[in-house]
Design a protein around this nucleic acid. Sequence first.
DNA 1: GTGAAACTAACGAACGTTAGTTAGCCAAAG
DNA 2: CTTTGGCTAACTAACGTTCGTTAGTTTCAC
Lengths: 195, 195
Amino acid sequence: MSSTRDTILSTAAELFAARGFDTITMRDIAGACQIKAPSLYNHFADKKTLYQETLSFVFEEHGASLIGCLKGEKPAEEKLGNFIRLICHHLNEQPMFRQLFMRELIEQDEDRYRFLVNVVMAETCHALHDIFLAINPTCDPHFLTTSLIGLVIFHFQINPMRPYLPGGSTETQSEAYLATNILKLISQALEQPRE
Amino acid sequence: MSSTRDTILSTAAELFAARGFDTITMRDIAGACQIKAPSLYNHFADKKTLYQETLSFVFEEHGASLIGCLKGEKPAEEKLGNFIRLICHHLNEQPMFRQLFMRELIEQDEDRYRFLVNVVMAETCHALHDIFLAINPTCDPHFLTTSLIGLVIFHFQINPMRPYLPGGSTETQSEAYLATNILKLISQALEQPRE
DNA sequence: GTGAAACTAACGAACGTTAGTTAGCCAAAG
DNA sequence: CTTTGGCTAACTAACGTTCGTTAGTTTCAC
C-alpha cells in the first residue's frame, strides 16, 4: 500500500536530484505523480518542506544501509572492503542519492551541512575512522575517511565525462573496477605510517 | 580601466558560483554592478549567454594557469608536486572556480560536459596522464588522474563541513596540509605496479 | 573648428509568463 | 456525516525581457 505521500516523496527525489530545487516546479512533481499541484499541499506545507522531507526520506534510507556493513565483529579489513563495494553499488545504481548529496554539498549553508552530517555522514565517518585506526594506529584517519568519501563520490559523478578524457574506456566506469581500485588506493595509504 | 563588461562578468561569476543560475536574477547581478537590469542587455544577449560567457571567463583563466606548471623540461615528480600545490592554492583561494566547476558537474548535460572538458580539463588531464606514465609506466594513468582531480576538489569542497566530522581540526583544512597529504597518497599509489 | 549625425550605454516603465500558494468545491471512504 | 484527498480557478509576486527615451561621446563633411 504505497501511500500517495510516499509516491510524492520518491517522485520528488528523482526530480530534485536530476534538475535541482529551483528548476523543478510543484506542477512538475504533481504531474509525475498524476495529480495536480494544489493536491500536494494536502500532504506537505510548502515546497521547501517537501524538499526537506525528500532529503530525509532518501538520506535516512541510504545512511542506515551504509552504516550496517560497518558494524559487527568482522575484521576491520573485511569491513572496509565491504563498505567500499557497497557504497560503490549505491552510487552506481542510485544516482539520485549521489546527486542530492552533491547538491547539498554545493549550497554553502551551515544548517544544511549539519543536517547532511547528522543524517548520513556522522555515524559512517566515525565507523570508518575507527576501522582505519584498527588497521593502522599510526595512520591519519580523518584524512583517509574524507579521501575515501571524496573518491567514491567523484569517480561516479564524472563517469559520464570519462569518454572525453584520456584513457576513459567503458571498463573504467564500471562499479567493480572502481571499487577494486579505490580499495587498493586506500589500502596502500593505510600501510604507511603518518610522517 | 576595467570595462563595464568585465565588471559584469566577474560580479556574475561570484554570484552564480555562490548561489547558482536559477537563484540569481538579472536584477541581482545588475544591482551588484550598480546599474539596472535592462542595462545588462547592452552587453549580453540574454541571461543564458551571460552565464556561458561567465564560465568561459573563469575557466579559461584557471585552465591556462594550471596547464602552465605541467609543461617544460622539469622532472615529472617535480611537476606533479608543483601541480598539486598550485591547484590546491587555486581551490583554496578562489572558491568561485571550484563552485562553478561543481555546478557544471552536477547538471548531467552532454554539451556542458564537453565544454568543461575542452576548456579546463582536456589539456591538464593529458599532461597528468603523461606525467604518471613517465614516473611509472606500469601504472593506471586514467584512474590516477581522475582520482587526483577528485581528491583536490572534494577535500576543499567539504572544508566547511570538517568541524562536524571526527578529527576535523582546523589544521586539516589548510592548503598546505591537504596538498602534502594528497601528494603523498598519489605518490604511494604510483610506486605500485598495476595488478 | 563646428555642428549634424551616429553610436554607446544607461534608465524607468511595462509586458507576458510562470512560479508558489490559497480558497472553495466535490466525491468517496469509514 | 465527517474526514480525506482530489479538483478548478484564481491570486500575488517575481522573473526575464522589450520598449522608448535620454545623456554623453565619437565621427566627419563642410
